[in-house]
Design a protein around this nucleic acid. Structure first.
Length: 435
DNA sequence: TCTGGGGTCCTAGGACCC
DNA sequence: TCTGGGGTCCTAGGACCC
């Protein structure tokens, strides 16, 4: 078997092990070898688990209140999400990873694809993966696993199995056909990228239970019987790349959302307005940081009145006469939409804002009635406030419409949060010296 | 009593057009 | 009783990802 892969594209998927837990352990070494779970916003459900917590049976995504008792019994450490810390560690490791390949695509907070076109002759995939892993761990302290293959679906699969390999690296092209087949047979379809519970159930009814079964299917028949994305998965399992990561820059974002669940149900319209204002400031800031403006703005409210088993969700969308990224006008529109959406007396559990139909700045046509100097002023003010936020965080400048109510009356719960070690001067870890 | 917060892509169905 | 064919655009909702 050839040990080199050259003149073929190669894709690596880098995945930080138990990312949130690993970030927490960096600054709190006493968490090592302990069962640890991290909760979502509002301490609602479990979103990350250490290996020890997985072994105890804590499921991903499970509502926290059902598992609190087990945590107490087993001495499991529980933490609220600390997104300041995770976001900062993510930026650090992604920046490092980008240096190893022709193209990087950041896929989630803890995963990125790297690709080479072609993979350099004379290197082995496994050797390259091992070198990347060693460097990332040395410079960030975060443990990663790496899968390398010719398609993204196989790279995901290889990453999944990398944890069973010495060195936590699995290079698919360097496995023997027998080894590849065994992995495919031992992978249930539900573990494949792009196949959720629903498609897995339908496939099971047709006797397609594992990845080897699916790889043997005729893609055309799969497209007819199911849908095109699933047929693409079949191609990718067979080694034909469909999902490309070749573009040097990621495709432009199409929408931006910002929403949170309230710490407790809200009926006061002032609080609803306040929350929308905060979320819209956040969304608008993100919009400007991506160099885009929005043509559609939306808000939504969620409520779960007593005796109702499902959640009521009500939307208001509005098209804008011209693309805008100005916080003040976006906030004003959101508040106007709220007035038409709010029903007095309903206990609201969540609110959110949406910015859609994003266009790159400068791409839109002007409006006959715009006054360029006014637009320019609004833009400069928004950017000034962004800069103040960047430097001073919540203590910086804000909009008059937000902060009318006390945040503690509606902000999500974060009862078990660790310090923002790397992004707040007040939370810097202290080193105690004893004489 | 208590169940996150982002995103993308696809499909179905209605309105409308020639 | 019968009731074309093909296209676009829009919205709502589902499925999936982490």
């Amino acid at each position: 078997m050839s040990s080199t892969v050259s003149s073929f594209p190669l894709i690596a998927l880098i995945d930080v092990n138990n990312f949130y837990v690993s970030c927490e352990r960096l600054f709190n070494p006493s968490l090592a070898h302990q069962p640890v779970v991290v909760l979502s916003n509002n301490d609602g459900c479990i979103v990350a688990r250490s290996d020890e917590a997985k072994a105890l049976g804590f499921p991903m995504g499970a509502p926290w209140f059902r598992w609190r008792a087990l945590a107490r019994r087993s001495g499991t450490v529980v933490l609220s999400s600390n997104y300041e810390l995770y976001g900062d560690m993510s930026r650090r490791i992604m920046r490092l990873a980008a240096g190893f390949a022709d193209v990087q695509e950041i896929y989630s907070i803890d995963e990125c694809f790297l690709s080479w076109h072609p993979f350099p002759a004379g290197c082995t995939a496994a050797g390259t993966g091992g070198a990347i892993r060693a460097d990332l761990e040395r410079w960030t302290g975060l443990p990663v696993k790496i899968g390398l293959a010719g398609t993204r679906t196989l790279a995901k699969l290889a990453t999944h199995w990398a944890k069973t390999r010495p060195g936590a690296v699995l290079a698919w092209p360097e496995l023997t056909p027998d080894e590849q087949d065994e992995i495919l047979r031992r992978t249930p379809v539900s573990a494949l990228w792009g196949i959720g519970p629903n498609r897995a159930r339908h496939l099971g009814q047709d006797g397609i239970l594992n990845a080897a079964d699916l790889a043997r299917c005729n893609p055309g028949q799969i497209a007819d019987r199911f849908d095109r994305p699933l047929a693409q998965t079949v191609h990718e399992l067979r080694g034909t790349p469909i999902f490309s990561s070749r573009h040097p820059s990621p495709p432009a974002r199409q929408s931006i959302l910002s929403s949170r669940s309230f710490g407790s149900p809200v009926t006061d319209p002032t609080i609803l307005a306040d929350s929308l204002c905060v979320y819209m400031s956040h969304a608008a800031n993100k919009l400007r940081s991506t160099g885009a403006s929005a043509l559609t703005i939306g808000i939504w409210l969620e409520s779960r009145p007593r005796g109702l088993s499902h959640t009521l969700r009500r939307w208001r969308l509005q098209g804008l006469p011209r693309p805008t990224s100005d916080s003040r006008s976006l906030i004003a529109t959101a508040l106007a939409l709220l007035a038409s959406l709010h029903e007095p007396g309903l206990p609201y559990t969540k609110s959110g804002v949406y910015l859609g139909d994003l266009v790159p700045d400068g791409a839109g046509c002007g409006n006959l009635f715009d006054r360029p100097d006014a637009t320019d002023r609004a833009d400069r003010l928004s950017r000034l406030i962004d800069e103040s936020h960047r430097r001073f965080g919540p203590h910086g400048l804000g909009y008059g419409a937000s902060g009318l109510t006390h945040p503690l009356s509606w902000n999500p719960k974060r009862d078990f949060r660790s310090p923002a070690y790397t992004t707040d001067w007040h939370h810097l870890p202290l080193v105690h010296a004893y004489p």
